Computed example of a mutant assay.
Amino acid sequence: MVRPRRPERPTQTPLLPPLKLYRSILRAHAHKLPPELRQFGDQYVKKEFKDHKNVDNPLHIVGFLTEWQDYLKQLDGGKWLDGKLSKQDLEKMSPEQIGQLYELMEATKKIGQQEAAA
């Protein structure tokens, strides 16, 4: 009897523990981001991790850590410079997340304008 083959799963990197991931992101900011973006990025990461500190829903925790780990990979690979948000990713976001994204966009525009004026 021939068994059907299991579909192959892509190899996934195990999730980093929250504190290790947090520290790794801040280290990556120090080495990969320009100083004016580093301060903004550090504040944002600190706020997000603090806001999610007491979450106890396992699915939410895994999703949170997965997204931040993907962000870390983008930073390390230099892909953050030309990263774009897909329509599918945008459709998955809550209105609150879209509002945060808009605030992030406005803050980075201000930084860009300040650099251009200097």
Rank of each mutant, 00 (worst) to 15 (best):
K50N: 15
E103D: 14
S86R: 01
K53T: 04
L33W: 04
P34W: 00
L85M: 12
K87G: 13
L21K: 05
Y22I: 01
G78L: 08
P17G: 12
K32R: 14
W68V: 02
L101E: 08
G83H: 10
A30W: 08
G99T: 09
N54G: 02
R6Q: 07
Y102Q: 13
Q43D: 13
K87P: 05
A118Q: 08
T11V: 15
E103F: 11
Q100K: 15
Q74F: 02
P34K: 07
A118C: 06
R38T: 06
W80Q: 09
M93K: 10
E91S: 13
L16K: 07
F40L: 10
R38G: 01
V55Q: 12
P17F: 09
Q39Y: 03
Q88D: 08
L90W: 09
P95E: 06
D51Q: 15
G63F: 10
W68E: 09
D82V: 09
S94P: 00
S86P: 00
V2K: 15
Q113V: 04
T66G: 01
L21N: 02
D70H: 10
L59K: 10
H31D: 15
H60V: 14
H31L: 12
H52K: 13
K79G: 13
T11S: 03
Q88C: 05
E8T: 11
P58T: 00
F64C: 01
E96I: 06
K84F: 05
A107V: 01
A117G: 01
G99R: 15
A117K: 13
M1N: 14
L19A: 15
T11Q: 14
R38W: 01
A30E: 12
P17N: 11
Q113E: 12
Y71G: 07
A30S: 14
P18C: 02
L59Y: 02
L65F: 11
Q114Y: 00
R9N: 11
L104H: 13
A28G: 02
K92D: 09
L75I: 01
D70F: 11
N57R: 11
E8I: 12
G78P: 05
G41I: 03
L16Q: 02
P18S: 03
R3I: 08
K109L: 11
Y71C: 07
W80N: 06
K110I: 08
